[in-house]
């Protein structure tokens, strides 16, 4: 949190509203429990004991889109799944972010064919792309930290 000044030993700090809100948003992000394919297994690994996403305040995965603010698109999105994915995105309340996890979600990966949407950014706006097939848990964590950095740059004028 961008600490501006500290008033003696009265236990009071002053900072900007933006910084406080952004700090809160980055440290209690609730991802949607939404796995599609292989990457979902690596997402579960990231969630589990060894990589422990709760270090980033993300141990609580919400199965309902209405309670979550981060969508991790983990896996290939088929044309049959695309409308469902868009509907889930629409059901998420603002502010919301999207991480495209893996090559398939980012660009179609090895599946350049009739069935797979060539990049999930065709249907939802993506904030961070994570490369890999599937990405290692460290890579996903790097993507999440990158998203945090991005959120910390947001200003009040952007919120409206």
């Amino acid at each position: 949190m961008g600490l501006t000044s500290k008033l003696g030993n009265m236990g009071i700090v002053t900072t900007r509203l933006e910084d406080t809100v952004n700090w809160g948003r980055t440290n209690a992000m609730w991802p949607m429990l939404f796995g599609l394919a292989c990457c979902a297994i690596e997402m579960m690994s990231t969630q589990a004991a060894n990589y422990d996403l709760s270090r980033f305040g993300m141990e609580l995965m919400r199965p309902s889109p209405r309670q979550s603010d981060l969508m991790i698109v983990a896996g290939r999105v088929t044309r049959k799944m695309a409308p469902v994915l868009r509907q889930l995105y629409d059901q998420m309340p603002e502010p919301k972010w999207v991480i495209s996890m893996g090559d398939c979600a980012s660009c179609g990966g090895v599946f350049n064919n009739y069935a797979i949407v060539q990049g999930v950014d065709e249907i939802v706006p993506v904030d961070v792309y994570v490369a890999g097939c599937p990405p290692r848990p460290e890579q996903l964590i790097h993507g999440i930290v990158t998203l945090h950095e991005r959120i910390k740059q947001e200003r009040i004028v952007d919120w409206a």
């Binding site: 599609l36 394919a37 896996g75 290939r76 088929t78 049959k80 799944m81 469902v84 090895v110 599946f111 064919n113 009739y114 069935a115 797979i116």
Partner: peptide
């Protein structure tokens, strides 16, 4: 079913 049909066999 078919929400994850990837066309792997065809590919």
């Amino acid at each position: 079913i078919g929400y994850l049909h990837t066309g792997i066999e065809k590919n």
